[in-house]
């Protein structure tokens, strides 16, 4: 069975897909972001039980920091909304003719729901909050 000519990441990314290809790339990146968050939680819990709380506290400080929280919020919200859009499109295939409009609608929901809390978190960080 043909296993494919290897198409490297860079060569693949050079392909000029449109906004949906960007959405797919972001879906992968945000999925990895969520994996990193869950992974650090598990590692922190492991160190807390196995060694003591020093390393655990360091890891917890990293993932509870405001920039990390903004990043995690971006990842979770984007991944969830994009996933919901794909579910809707899979269940009602005729909607796929309006895939651009659906994607714009997704961004229309995403931007205020992400932007407002993220802005508040960043402002609180600048004003000296932890």
């Amino acid at each position: 069975m043909y296993r494919g000519r290897h198409v490297g990441y860079l060569e693949g990314l050079r392909y000029k897909g449109q906004e949906n290809m960007l959405a797919w790339v972001l879906h992968r990146i945000t999925g990895l972001g969520i994996l990193i968050l869950v992974g650090t939680h598990v590692i922190a819990a492991f160190f807390l039980n196995a060694i003591g709380d020093n390393i655990s506290t360091t890891i917890t400080t990293i993932y509870e920091s405001k920039p990390m929280q903004v990043f995690v919020y971006f990842c979770v919200l984007y991944h969830a909304l994009n996933g919901l859009r794909l579910i809707v499109e899979d269940l009602w295939p005729p909607l796929l003719r309006y895939h651009r409009e659906l994607l714009w609608f997704q961004w229309l929901v995403f931007l205020p729901v992400f932007g407002l809390p993220a802005a508040l978190m960043i402002v609180s960080l600048w004003s000296g909050g932890a």
Partner: peptide
């Protein structure tokens, strides 16, 4: 299929490829 739409954009016959794939999935 990851619903990336490159196929629909690339089709020189303007076939709604992603829609056809979704119909098969359904």
């Amino acid at each position: 299929c990851r619903t990336i739409y490159n196929c629909t954009d690339a089709c020189p016959r303007d076939i709604q490829v992603t829609q056809a794939i979704a119909e098969v999935k359904k």
